[in-house]
């Protein structure tokens, strides 16, 4: 039995090696593995062998069958590599895949939301055309206050109510809108477009995105603010980032703080990204001004909390190494594809 199998395998292998196309392979398959093939005949005859030989013969015949099947598959693969026998070039580019992309600002905003969500911040939005009252008055910036110079404002030409409608200059009015509607605890972030009456250049836009953060409760402290910001810059820019804050002024926070992080490009050694200082200004923040709380009906002796605000383009520029803020609004596919 084994001898016949060996002979059969030898001749089958030899024939397979010269089979050069699908038809020849099919012919070979019928001859050696088909219903009328010698091997099939041998397998059928196993049953007629003496009981003690059956097992061994059966195993041998089945092994031979498997071997021939594998040989056939290998030969098929060889042949398919190319009609002329040439090897397939795996360095050929793939066929075009038509998958689109999200805008880098959308991606950055999502990342900011994702980072802050575990701390309980919910994302809310508010109107881009806003009343002066929300954009300024309720944020402790009365009419004719010199602090208004901090925000160059686009005004809407509205005959019925002159001077009242404007394009919001920051996302902060949504602070007041949220607090007017619900009682603490409050923990929200506000992503959205804001507008400044400002000539455009590589680092200034008349339209840009901000994210505002607000946390109000009975015991939210400035240390909580600092901890939140440290957590944020590390989640966004890597665990080695250091945060430092320094005194500043915003009409709607007291105390106020400007936050900087150690430069992610040079780790604080000084490089062009951080202007050689090792530190990068990242956002403005502070403890919500008691007047802002009182004006929305919160008792400032009971409730306190923090607010912060950052420019999304700035974060994206740092993350992606973009040097001109206007790139985000040109929507050049080469830019969008690069940052997909």
């Amino acid at each position: 039995m084994q001898e016949r199998l060996d002979a059969l395998l030898t001749s089958a292998r030899a024939e397979l090696a010269v089979a050069a196309d699908d038809a020849a392979l099919e012919q070979w398959r019928v001859t050696h593995l088909g219903r009328r093939s010698e091997l099939t005949g041998l397998l059928r005859s196993v049953g007629s062998l003496p009981r003690e030989e059956r097992r061994e013969a059966g195993q041998a015949a089945n092994a031979a069958r498997r071997e021939l099947e594998e040989a056939l598959e290998t030969r098929q693969t060889e042949l398919r590599r190319g009609a002329d026998g040439a090897q397939l070039d795996v360095t050929m580019p793939g066929y075009p895949v038509r998958l689109g992309s999200l805008h880098p600002l959308t991606r950055t905003l999502r990342e900011i939301r994702r980072v802050l969500a575990p701390l309980g911040f919910r994302a809310v939005s508010g109107p881009e055309v806003e009343w002066d009252r929300y954009n300024f008055e309720l944020l402790n910036i009365p009419a004719d206050h010199p602090a208004r110079d901090m925000w160059d404002t686009f005004h809407i030409d509205d005959k019925a109510r002159p001077g009242e409608l404007l394009l919001r200059t920051h996302t902060s009015p949504v602070q007041a809108r949220v607090m007017e509607q619900i009682q603490p605890p409050v923990r929200v972030i506000v992503p959205g477009k804001v507008y400044r009456y400002e000539d455009r250049d590589a680092s200034h836009e008349a339209e840009f995105m901000q994210v505002e953060g607000l946390a109000i409760d009975k015991h939210i402290t400035m240390a909580d603010l600092r901890g939140t910001l440290t957590y944020f810059v590390r989640a966004m820019f890597g665990p080695d980032r250091e945060l430092r804050i320094r005194a500043s002024y915003f009409p709607f926070t007291e105390p106020s703080a400007e936050a900087e992080m150690s430069c992610h490009a040079c780790n604080g050694d000084g490089c062009p990204v951080c202007g050689g200082t090792g530190w990068i200004e990242i956002l403005g923040s502070g403890m919500v001004h008691p007047k802002v709380l009182a004006d929305v009906g919160y008792d400032p002796d009971v409730y306190q909390g923090f607010a912060f605000g950052m420019g999304v383009e700035r974060i994206a520029m740092l993350k992606y190494g973009v040097t001109d803020i206007r790139s985000f609004y040109r929507n050049d596919l080469r830019f969008l594809r690069q940052l997909r």
């Binding site: 919910r122 949220v178 619900i182 605890p185 923990r187 409760d217 015991h219 240390a223 939140t228």
Partner: peptide
């Protein structure tokens, strides 16, 4: 002087104007 801590306490309900 200010240390890093994270806010604790109750998490808010659904916010108005939620995205």
């Amino acid at each position: 002087r200010i240390p890093d801590t994270l806010p604790t306490g109750q998490v808010m309900d659904l916010a108005p104007g939620e995205i």
